[in-house]
Amino acid sequence: MTDTPMNHHEQIDHVVETGVALPFWTVFKREFSAYFRSPVAYGIAFAVLLFLGVLFNGYITYANQSQQTPADSTYAPGLLVFLLFLIAPLLTMRLIAEESREGTLEVLMTLPMHEGQFILGKFLAAWGYFTVLLLLTVVYHLILLTIGVPDLGAAFGSYLGAWLYGGAVIAITMIWSAVTEDQIVAAFLGAATILVLYLAEIAASWVASQGAVGGIADFIRELGLQAHFGVTLSRGILRLEDVLYFVFMIVAALFITTRIVEIRRWRA
């Protein structure tokens, strides 16, 4: 505060023009660009693409030698979807936990913006980052196009599915970021939740093998993520309920996150 003294002019106090605010869009822009300014996001992209690349390379090498493996356009999206249990918590752990710990949440929550807008902006940013990552994996499909005949419809289905799947997973892991200020705890709980939802299909078979009654096994299975992607969307079957499952997961998770942020701040 030594260089410039504060100005005491009054010219600042004119009426400031305001228009229709789209706070979620502003929050989205900031958070989205923050991902591309953060080395962490590049680190995640590097690790994911390297992992996918090595496996994909192995897959096409094997397929080329065996001479009887048709091109499978769901290979990369399927793998990416599996990795989401690691990616999503890393993307979302800081989103709310950091704001909460740094106190910036207090400023944001005194702005004329509903919590939902703030949560939505944050979510869209993380989903946007995932979308970019997913688009990068289209390169695997392009390679398959040059060396085989992948089914374009099935590819579209599996990329669409992976995109929705990612949205749902990101929304769910965001809940934990709102619950705890500790990013590590948020990431750990997020990963555990997603892994459980990923493995629900296996749990369902186990429950069924234990002689459970009625549709409990089916219920568990349909609660899980894979039942709506692995056998249907990723193979090119577009079912209304699968799309709704992911959309509803996003809606419910964002709603819960908003509620938690609200309650936490009111009991601060």
């Binding site: 305001t18 228009g19 605010a21």
Partner: peptide
């Protein structure tokens, strides 16, 4: 500008500079 935009200010950039001037931080 971020805060201004959330508040729905139409031209956040000149306004941000104006306010920084007011608090004597224009140079930073």
């Amino acid at each position: 500008m971020y805060i201004g935009e959330i508040r729905g200010i139409k031209r956040p950039r000149p306004r941000a500079d104006e306010v920084l001037e007011r608090v004597g931080l224009a140079s930073r």
